[in-house]
Protein backbone atom coordinates (compact mmCIF):
# COMPACT_ATOMS: atom_id res chain seq x y z
CA UNK A 1 0.00 0.00 0.00
CA UNK A 2 2.76 2.38 1.08
CA UNK A 3 4.87 1.40 -1.93
CA UNK A 4 1.93 2.02 -4.23
CA UNK A 5 1.44 5.44 -2.69
CA UNK A 6 5.13 6.26 -3.24
CA UNK A 7 4.88 5.07 -6.83
CA UNK A 8 1.83 7.24 -7.42
CA UNK A 9 3.62 10.28 -5.93
CA UNK A 10 6.71 9.57 -8.05
CA UNK A 11 4.63 9.27 -11.23
CA UNK A 12 2.78 12.47 -10.35
CA UNK A 13 6.05 14.35 -9.86
CA UNK A 14 7.42 12.91 -13.07
CA UNK A 15 4.37 13.99 -15.06
CA UNK A 16 4.39 17.44 -13.50
CA UNK A 17 8.06 17.74 -14.42
CA UNK A 18 7.28 16.72 -18.00
CA UNK A 19 4.44 19.23 -18.13
CA UNK A 20 6.81 22.01 -17.02
CA UNK A 21 9.33 20.92 -19.67
CA UNK A 22 6.70 20.93 -22.38
CA UNK A 23 5.48 24.34 -21.32
CA UNK A 24 9.04 25.74 -21.51
CA UNK A 25 9.54 24.08 -24.88
CA UNK A 26 6.22 25.52 -26.08
CA UNK A 27 7.38 29.01 -25.05
CA UNK A 28 10.67 28.59 -26.88
CA UNK A 29 8.95 27.40 -30.05
CA UNK A 30 6.01 29.79 -30.14
CA UNK A 31 6.99 32.85 -28.10
CA UNK A 32 10.66 32.73 -29.13
CA UNK A 33 11.49 32.90 -25.43
CA UNK A 34 15.24 32.40 -24.86
CA UNK A 35 14.69 32.47 -21.09
CA UNK A 36 12.48 29.39 -21.36
CA UNK A 37 15.44 27.56 -22.92
CA UNK A 38 17.57 28.82 -20.03
CA UNK A 39 15.04 27.34 -17.61
CA UNK A 40 15.38 23.93 -19.26
CA UNK A 41 19.16 24.27 -19.03
CA UNK A 42 18.94 25.13 -15.31
CA UNK A 43 16.69 22.14 -14.66
CA UNK A 44 18.93 19.54 -16.33
CA UNK A 45 22.54 20.71 -16.49
CA UNK A 46 23.45 19.06 -13.18
CA UNK A 47 21.85 15.70 -14.00
CA UNK A 48 23.30 15.60 -17.51
CA UNK A 49 26.73 16.44 -16.12
CA UNK A 50 26.37 13.65 -13.53
CA UNK A 51 25.20 11.24 -16.22
CA UNK A 52 28.27 11.99 -18.29
CA UNK A 53 30.84 12.44 -15.55
CA UNK A 54 31.59 8.83 -14.61
CA UNK A 55 31.47 7.72 -18.25
CA UNK A 56 34.23 9.95 -19.60
CA UNK A 57 37.89 10.19 -18.56
CA UNK A 58 38.00 13.72 -17.19
CA UNK A 59 36.07 16.61 -15.80
CA UNK A 60 36.94 18.72 -18.85
CA UNK A 61 35.52 16.13 -21.23
CA UNK A 62 32.40 15.85 -19.06
CA UNK A 63 31.93 19.61 -19.25
CA UNK A 64 32.41 19.62 -23.02
CA UNK A 65 29.94 16.79 -23.50
CA UNK A 66 27.36 18.42 -21.18
CA UNK A 67 27.63 21.77 -22.99
CA UNK A 68 27.49 20.06 -26.39
CA UNK A 69 24.36 18.19 -25.27
CA UNK A 70 22.44 21.43 -24.78
CA UNK A 71 23.78 22.90 -27.99
CA UNK A 72 22.51 19.87 -29.93
CA UNK A 73 19.23 20.15 -28.05
CA UNK A 74 18.92 23.74 -29.27
CA UNK A 75 19.66 22.66 -32.85
CA UNK A 76 16.96 20.00 -32.55
CA UNK A 77 14.49 22.71 -31.47
CA UNK A 78 15.50 24.86 -34.42
CA UNK A 79 14.91 21.92 -36.78
CA UNK A 80 11.45 21.37 -35.23
CA UNK A 81 12.37 17.85 -34.15
CA UNK A 82 9.55 16.17 -32.26
CA UNK A 83 10.50 16.05 -28.57
CA UNK A 84 8.07 14.02 -26.51
CA UNK A 85 10.15 13.95 -23.34
CA UNK A 86 12.76 16.66 -22.81
CA UNK A 87 14.62 14.80 -20.08
CA UNK A 88 14.88 11.56 -22.05
CA UNK A 89 15.81 13.50 -25.18
CA UNK A 90 18.70 15.18 -23.36
CA UNK A 91 19.91 11.85 -21.98
CA UNK A 92 19.70 10.37 -25.46
CA UNK A 93 21.88 13.16 -26.87
CA UNK A 94 24.36 12.86 -23.99
CA UNK A 95 24.58 9.10 -24.37
CA UNK A 96 25.19 9.42 -28.12
CA UNK A 97 27.89 12.01 -27.47
CA UNK A 98 29.63 9.72 -25.01
CA UNK A 99 29.49 6.89 -27.55
CA UNK A 100 30.82 9.24 -30.23
CA UNK A 101 33.62 10.31 -27.91
CA UNK A 102 34.84 6.74 -27.39
CA UNK A 103 34.35 5.90 -31.04
CA UNK A 104 36.58 8.82 -31.96
CA UNK A 105 39.11 7.92 -29.33
CA UNK A 106 38.86 4.27 -30.36
CA UNK A 107 39.89 3.25 -26.88
CA UNK A 108 36.98 2.86 -24.54
CA UNK A 109 38.60 0.04 -22.69
CA UNK A 110 41.89 1.87 -22.36
CA UNK A 111 40.21 5.01 -21.03
CA UNK A 112 38.03 3.15 -18.56
CA UNK A 113 40.99 1.37 -17.10
CA UNK A 114 43.36 4.32 -17.24
CA UNK A 115 41.13 7.03 -15.91
CA UNK A 116 40.06 5.02 -12.90
CA UNK A 117 43.61 5.14 -11.68
CA UNK A 118 44.02 8.78 -12.53
CA UNK A 119 42.94 10.65 -9.44
CA UNK A 120 44.13 13.97 -10.84
CA UNK A 121 41.21 14.11 -13.28
CA UNK A 122 38.64 14.48 -10.51
CA UNK A 123 36.36 17.46 -10.28
CA UNK A 124 37.46 20.25 -7.99
CA UNK A 125 33.81 21.06 -7.47
CA UNK A 126 33.23 17.50 -6.38
CA UNK A 127 36.37 16.85 -4.46
CA UNK A 128 36.07 19.49 -1.86
CA UNK A 129 37.26 17.10 0.83
CA UNK A 130 39.29 13.94 1.05
CA UNK A 131 36.29 11.78 1.96
CA UNK A 132 34.43 12.67 -1.16
CA UNK A 133 37.60 12.26 -3.18
CA UNK A 134 37.96 8.78 -1.82
CA UNK A 135 34.36 7.93 -2.62
CA UNK A 136 34.85 9.06 -6.18
CA UNK A 137 37.84 6.80 -6.64
CA UNK A 138 35.87 3.92 -5.20
CA UNK A 139 32.94 4.68 -7.46
CA UNK A 140 35.11 4.69 -10.54
CA UNK A 141 36.66 1.41 -9.46
CA UNK A 142 33.22 -0.08 -8.83
CA UNK A 143 32.03 1.16 -12.18
CA UNK A 144 35.01 -0.44 -13.88
CA UNK A 145 34.30 -3.75 -12.18
CA UNK A 146 30.59 -3.55 -13.02
CA UNK A 147 31.32 -2.65 -16.61
CA UNK A 148 33.76 -5.51 -16.97
CA UNK A 149 31.07 -7.86 -15.70
CA UNK A 150 28.14 -6.58 -17.68
CA UNK A 151 30.33 -6.34 -20.77
CA UNK A 152 29.50 -10.00 -21.21
CA UNK A 153 25.81 -9.15 -21.56
CA UNK A 154 24.16 -8.27 -24.87
CA UNK A 155 24.39 -4.58 -25.79
CA UNK A 156 20.67 -4.01 -25.21
CA UNK A 157 20.85 -5.59 -21.75
CA UNK A 158 23.94 -3.59 -20.88
CA UNK A 159 22.35 -0.28 -21.84
CA UNK A 160 19.14 -0.93 -19.95
CA UNK A 161 20.93 -2.09 -16.81
CA UNK A 162 23.24 0.93 -16.84
CA UNK A 163 20.48 3.46 -17.47
CA UNK A 164 18.18 1.85 -14.91
CA UNK A 165 20.54 0.94 -12.09
CA UNK A 166 23.23 3.60 -12.37
CA UNK A 167 21.48 6.58 -13.92
CA UNK A 168 18.14 5.87 -12.27
CA UNK A 169 15.97 6.46 -15.32
CA UNK A 170 12.42 5.12 -15.47
CA UNK A 171 11.39 2.54 -18.05
CA UNK A 172 9.51 5.16 -20.08
CA UNK A 173 12.56 7.43 -20.22
CA UNK A 174 14.90 4.54 -21.08
CA UNK A 175 12.48 3.59 -23.85
CA UNK A 176 12.78 7.06 -25.35
CA UNK A 177 16.57 7.12 -24.97
CA UNK A 178 16.95 3.72 -26.66
CA UNK A 179 14.04 4.32 -29.06
CA UNK A 180 12.11 1.27 -27.88
CA UNK A 181 8.68 0.80 -26.29
CA UNK A 182 8.47 0.90 -22.46
CA UNK A 183 7.13 -2.66 -22.44
CA UNK A 184 10.07 -3.88 -24.47
CA UNK A 185 12.49 -2.10 -22.12
CA UNK A 186 10.83 -3.72 -19.11
CA UNK A 187 11.23 -7.16 -20.67
CA UNK A 188 14.87 -6.46 -21.56
CA UNK A 189 15.58 -5.32 -18.00
CA UNK A 190 14.15 -8.46 -16.42
CA UNK A 191 16.01 -10.67 -18.88
CA UNK A 192 19.21 -8.72 -18.16
CA UNK A 193 18.84 -9.25 -14.41
CA UNK A 194 18.30 -12.97 -15.02
CA UNK A 195 21.31 -12.99 -17.31
CA UNK A 196 23.41 -11.56 -14.47
CA UNK A 197 22.55 -14.74 -12.51
CA UNK A 198 23.80 -16.90 -15.34
CA UNK A 199 27.08 -15.06 -15.72
CA UNK A 200 30.03 -17.04 -14.41
CA UNK A 201 30.77 -14.61 -11.71
Amino acid sequence: MFLNFRAVVFRGKNRMSQLIDHYQLYRVRTKRDADAFANIYDRYIASIYRFVYLKVPSKEVAEDVAAETFLRFWHAILQNTEIRNVRAFLYQIARNLVVDFYRKEGAMRRVVTNDLDDTSTGSEGLLSDRGRHQRLIEARTDLRIVRERIEKLKEDYRDVVTLRLIDGLGFADIALVLEKTPGHVRVIYHRAVKALDNLSL
Binding site: Y41, A46, R50, W74, S123, R132, E138, D142, D167
Partner: peptide, 25 residues
Protein backbone atom coordinates in the same frame (compact mmCIF):
# COMPACT_ATOMS: atom_id res chain seq x y z
CA UNK B 1 25.84 -0.59 -8.87
CA UNK B 2 23.97 1.01 -6.01
CA UNK B 3 27.21 2.41 -4.66
CA UNK B 4 28.09 3.93 -8.04
CA UNK B 5 24.65 5.41 -8.29
CA UNK B 6 24.91 6.96 -4.83
CA UNK B 7 28.27 8.49 -5.71
CA UNK B 8 26.97 9.75 -9.01
CA UNK B 9 24.14 11.55 -7.25
CA UNK B 10 26.67 13.48 -5.15
CA UNK B 11 28.48 14.85 -8.20
CA UNK B 12 27.95 18.58 -8.67
CA UNK B 13 29.27 20.57 -11.62
CA UNK B 14 31.38 23.66 -10.99
CA UNK B 15 29.26 26.78 -10.59
CA UNK B 16 31.62 28.69 -12.88
CA UNK B 17 31.21 26.04 -15.61
CA UNK B 18 27.41 26.12 -15.27
CA UNK B 19 27.30 29.90 -15.47
CA UNK B 20 29.78 30.17 -18.33
CA UNK B 21 28.03 27.52 -20.41
CA UNK B 22 24.66 29.12 -19.68
CA UNK B 23 25.84 32.50 -20.93
CA UNK B 24 27.42 31.02 -24.06
CA UNK B 25 24.33 28.99 -24.85
Amino acid sequence: LKSVRTTERAIVPDASFVLRTRENL
